[in-house]
């Protein structure tokens, strides 16, 4: 059993009821589990919400997190995406300085990372970028810090590959 912390993406389906989110958030804070990000929205079945939680911990801690989540009465299903193959995506919006001297450079960086410029203003671009957390980090790293005006990230969403399906 590994005792060092590894990053896990946990997906879960829960009853789409008021307070459901606070039960999960409360569980993590009460038991001292770490949350890197948490995203939640209703699914195609409006009675269910799907949540993606990015956390880290030793194997024992992750095992407890899964069990504790399953124990919540509103939680229908829990899946540790790291138990198999999965795809992870996160969306980031970055507003960068795009004064004449920077404009071409920004456009080029954006192309390299396959981002899209979705808003153009006099002195700035807003770039939309989707990818794994690492890719988004890499994009930020590659920009001149002084050029970054604002960033906003959704937190990761994850889905199993192939026929790994989380559904009831």
């Amino acid at each position: 059993m590994t005792t060092h912390a590894t990053r896990h993406i946990i997906s879960l389906l829960m009853e789409n009821e008021s307070g459901a989110l606070s039960r999960v958030a409360g569980l993590f804070s009460a038991r001292g589990y770490n949350i890197e990000s948490l995203t939640v929205a209703a699914t195609e079945d409006p009675t269910l919400s799907r949540m993606t939680i990015v956390t880290s911990g030793s194997e024992a801690v992750i095992e407890q997190i899964i069990k504790q989540l399953n124990k919540l009465v509103d939680v229908v299903k829990v899946l540790d995406l790291n138990d198999g193959k999965f795809i992870e995506r996160e969306l980031m919006l970055v507003k960068v300085k795009a004064t004449s001297a920077f404009r071409d450079e920004m456009k080029r960086m954006c192309d390299i990372f396959r981002g899209r410029i979705i808003d153009v203003a006099d002195g700035s671009f807003t770039i939309e970028l989707t990818g794994s957390g690492n890719k988004l980090d890499a994009f930020i790293e590659s920009l001149d810090k002084a050029a970054i005006l604002e960033t906003v990230r959704t937190g990761a969403s994850g889905i199993g590959r192939g026929d790994r399906i989380l559904k009831i």
């Binding site: 095992e63 407890q64 504790q68 124990k71």
Partner: peptide, 10 residues
């Protein structure tokens, strides 16, 4: 309770 198992001791 599955969460009682291996919580403090493997």
């Amino acid at each position: 309770d599955p969460s009682s198992i291996s919580k403090r001791v493997k």
